[in-house]
Structure formats: C-alpha cells, structure tokens
Design a protein around this nucleic acid. Sequence first.
DNA 1: ATGAAAGCGCTAACAG
DNA 2: CTGTTAGCGCTTTCAT
Lengths: 336, 336
Amino acid sequence: MTTRRPTINDVAERAGVSKSLVSLALAGSAKVAPASRAAIQAAAEELGYRRNAAARSLAERRTRTVGVLALTLHNPVFAEILDGVQSRVRERGYHCVLVTGDSDPLVERHQIEQLLDLQVEGLILIAHRQDRSYLQEVAEQVPITVITQPAEVGAHIDLVSNDDIAGVGLAVDHLVALGHRHIAHVTGGTSSVANTRLAGYRRAMQAHGLQDCMRTQDGTFSDDGGYRGTRALLSADPTVTAIVVANDIAAIGALAAAQELGRSVPKDLSVIGYDGIALSGLRSIDLTTVAQPLTELGITGADLLMDRIAEPSAPARRIELAPQLIVRGSTAPANG
Amino acid sequence: MTTRRPTINDVAERAGVSKSLVSLALAGSAKVAPASRAAIQAAAEELGYRRNAAARSLAERRTRTVGVLALTLHNPVFAEILDGVQSRVRERGYHCVLVTGDSDPLVERHQIEQLLDLQVEGLILIAHRQDRSYLQEVAEQVPITVITQPAEVGAHIDLVSNDDIAGVGLAVDHLVALGHRHIAHVTGGTSSVANTRLAGYRRAMQAHGLQDCMRTQDGTFSDDGGYRGTRALLSADPTVTAIVVANDIAAIGALAAAQELGRSVPKDLSVIGYDGIALSGLRSIDLTTVAQPLTELGITGADLLMDRIAEPSAPARRIELAPQLIVRGSTAPANG
DNA sequence: ATGAAAGCGCTAACAG
DNA sequence: CTGTTAGCGCTTTCAT
C-alpha cells in the first residue's frame, strides 16, 4: 500500500523480456512464445501487477467507458433499467461509470461534465432533466442515448422509450372495460414524461367518448405527490370511481389516501399505477399497473449507444417499446 | 465529435503561451499574469477544451477517485446510504465510481478488480459478500472502508456500522412493552448482518426472560423471503403474536403473508421491520421499524476512508452508530 | 511570470 | 516471436 505499484517495466524486468512483449502477452496476443507468456504471467502474478487504466486509455486513445446518468436511485424503477444497461454494456466490452443527479438539474449537469472529463466514449441518460440545447451541445462531443424521455431531444441523439401514450391507453381501456366512466388522472408534475402520460390519458378518454368525465389533478412522481393529489381529488369530486396515477410510487401513495378517506380499494375505487416496478407486485400492495419493459429499455439503450460508438455517422434511431398491462388487485368493476 | 478533442497544446497555441502556463492557469495558480490567464481562459472556452482525466492522473500519479461498491440497487436502503457517501466524498474533493455486484459474490469480486484497475485511491464496500482473506489482500493495495458489515472484517480496514444488536433489542423491548411474549424472528438468511440481527433477537429475548418463547424462522432479506418465512411461521405456530423481521423489505412481505392468513395487523399480529427505508413510512405500508441512520452511515464511511487516504498508517477505526425505533401502525398491544 | 524538458505507464507501429 | 522507438495529454521541476 505504501510501496509503489508495480508497473509493466517491473514485470518485464522480472520476466527478462521487453515491456512491449509484456503488453502483448497481457493483451492475449497469439504471437507470444508460450515460454515467454508463462514467464510473464508468473512475474505479473508474483508482483501483483495490474495495469494502469489511465495509462492504457491515454496510449490507446480510448477509455472503453460509457457514462450512465440516472435521475435518482431512490425510485427502484431505475435499478431495473440499470440492470439492463450494465449487463449489455459489459457484454459489449465496455465499462459503466454510474452517476446520479438526485433529480437536481444542476447537480446533474455537473455530473455530466465530470463524465466528459473522464473521456467517456458515450453517454446514457436515464430520465434526465437537461434542456434540449445543452444536450445538443454535449452531443457534439460524444454520442448520447436517452432512455425514457420521449420529447426534449434534438438531432443526432438516439432514443429509446416506452410508448406512454399507448400505455396510459391500456390503463384507461381496462378501466372502461370494467364499467368505469369517471376515471381521473393524478399527474406526475410538469416533466415531459408526466406530460406525455397526461396526453395519453386525454387521448384515451376522448377515444372512449368520455371527454366530459375527464378530471385531472396535479401530483408528482413521489409517494407524497400521489397521496396529496388523490386526497385533493377525492375530496373535491366524490364521483370519481377510478384513478390512473402517473407512476407506481405515487399510486402507492394514492392507495393510502383512498384508505384514509374510507374508500376501499378496489371495491369503492380502482387505482392503477405505471412502471411495473417489482414493488407493485408485492403481495401487500398488489397494484394493477402498466409495466414498461424496464430491463429491455436498458438493454436497448445500451445497444443503441454502442452501435453509434461503433458507427458515429449512422442516422439517429428512435425506438419505442410496447408497455403491458398487469392486472392485479387494485382494480375491479365499477359499482362493485 | 468526429474531430479530435482539443488538448492543452491547442489551447496553448491559441493563447500564444506555453502549455506549462496553461496547466498552471487552469490549476488556478496565483503566479500567472492576469493577461495570460484571460487569454488562456478565452482560448479554452472557444475550443471547448476539457482536460483529459487519464492524462492528468497519469502525470499526477493519483486519480482523486474512490470506488464504491453497493450490494444491490434494488433495495432502496442502499440509495440512502449512497446519498451520504457521495455527498461527502465530493465535498472532500474526490470522485466516486459506483458499481454493484447484484448480490453475487463473483460479480462483486470482478467489479472490485475493475475498480482496482482504475487505480481508485480507496474503496467503500456497502454490505459486501467477500470473505475476510480476500478483503485483507485487497486492503494491502488500497485503503478499504466497510459500511454495515460488523463481522468478516480483518485488520487495517475501517468500519462503520449500525449497532444491530441494540437495534433488534429496541424492537423486542417495544413489543414486550406492548405485552407481547410470543415474539418470533424471521431471519435474513446466513449473511453476517442476518446473523447479527438474529443474535440481537436472542439476546434481547433472554434479557426479558423470554427464552422459552423464542421462535425463529429462516427467511431472506427480500419481500419473498419475508412472505414465505412468515407464512411458514404462522402456520406452524399460531401462538405467535408478534414478529421481528430482518429488514423492511422482508417485513413488507410479512405484512402480506399475515393478511393472507387472516391475521389482521396490528390487531392480531404485530410486525416490525428493520432499516427505516423511506418506503416503510409510506402511508399504505406504515411499518413500525428500527431505523438505521442511513445517510449518516454513508457520510461516516466516506470520512473514514478519506481520513485514511490522507493518513494511511493511522490505526483502524470501528464506529458503531445508534439505531432508533420508529413506531408506526404495524405494532399494537397484545391481545388487542 | 513563463518556457523547456522530463517523465507518468502504457500501446503501437516498425524493424529485425 | 521480440525489442526499439515514439508518442498519448498532462503536471512538474528547473531555469530564465
């Protein structure tokens, strides 16, 4: 620990060869004599040698590293997307450096700058908070793939998202099929994701000729937002029999609000979430939800980025994945 | 993006000075003439220059980076600890590289090796799965701080953990005060953390003279583990009136199991969790729990590591933080 | 206050 | 198959 780390020179000296040969051997080249290879391996082993990643990337002029920014680690939805991202990135021979902005655009931007300093070869942004022009600027330096954020993205940026319009449609369809008409929406706030889900709600309600029954209430993507929104909604309008909440975490808050107001779920009130996090399936929560293909979102995002790194001038791709309704115990027929 | 990134030489040329001066100016040295400084700043700006972290660490022979390994990102308990770690590490002028082993010891080890290749100056392990001898070996190369894992740690390794023995004691005390005697424990499995909590349970029960009422059931630290464990327990022994579950996530599973078996919580059965994750406070969960000072655990861990990096030969420190009982709606008087 | 020169540890041609 | 020679982009003496 106190002593200097062994370098490739130390290994070369000990093995009695040149350092280039050590480099070759360590890279697994076929044209190193078995004897030399063995000597080198032994020397490296004995010395506890590990190559210096900084020196390596400097010499190779590439870092084999991609930066990944997740909005927050507190919502498990990101852990699930990250599973996909990390596994695929590693499969393709790159490393991930993971950072969060804790939902704060400034921190987020600072983190992105850090990643850029690290000379990441690409950037994956999972539900970022940056504006289009900044992203565009960054995209000029390094390929970017955005996961989950349909709007706010400029040219040259690859994108994979879930089809939220269709997803919220699934939710509304399900409720309508159960006989509900007074279906309200508790929103996720003002982000582009929240807006898209709101738009999906409006479109679906209209498609069912239910525009006169539309009712929206401001909320956030947090437990508390869902709780407050639902309380306000139910107090102001007791005719509501079903609520589409902007995400699962907020829907869990909605469940609590309903319970406090004496509305039994699903008998008196149906509640439906969005995301499909593992949590929603916990038996004590048992939330009907629209599941995004979370891991696949991550895998696809990683593929997009790695493809672009391999071929930077390829045209930008926009992929939309299909959501899936998971019916659980928080929804039931109206007037049940 | 296609064009080569500007280097310090480009900046120097453009500003009409030597690259050493650029280096000095960028480091904020006072002995750079204001005029040169301005020219350099302007040139850097125009070129969109950012210094290459790899080259820098190579020249400086330090990376200003610490590696952080978290057991998994799926349990939000780690997000909360990480908040503390990251904020303090950054405050002290270092960067974090965050990785997970997804609860798999092999993946975990591979990740640690990666971090070592990156030449991190220190390692923070949050609930790792490595054995003592491997850790010891790594600790010879780089300072290590372990968060949350009381046992399994050798010499020269700093440590901060929650006092789980006392924590489980708090839980048992609370239940005893409510009149419970048949207090069972659903364990977290075989990890050292799980063992410590089990030991805490046994000790507390004995302290109350309740050794004859002790009842333990194998579980895991997951929702499912809590669910299965609780089902098995309740089916085998209906006299149990209260359960201490190994962590919050598993306790949420326990809640569901109780409900399915027709035991109403807290009326017929008290359930208490461990960790104090935000989730446990959600109104629809409302779990009584023993809260660890999660953020503080992270901050303290970061401090320990940074202190040791600054002074490698200081004696190892072991810090234990005090847990705190949070009484919510999942516990109530016995025979209520 | 500024520049020249010497590396940091490694890879990558290029000769043999 | 193996060694020599150049850097990669930056910091850091050491002169001036």
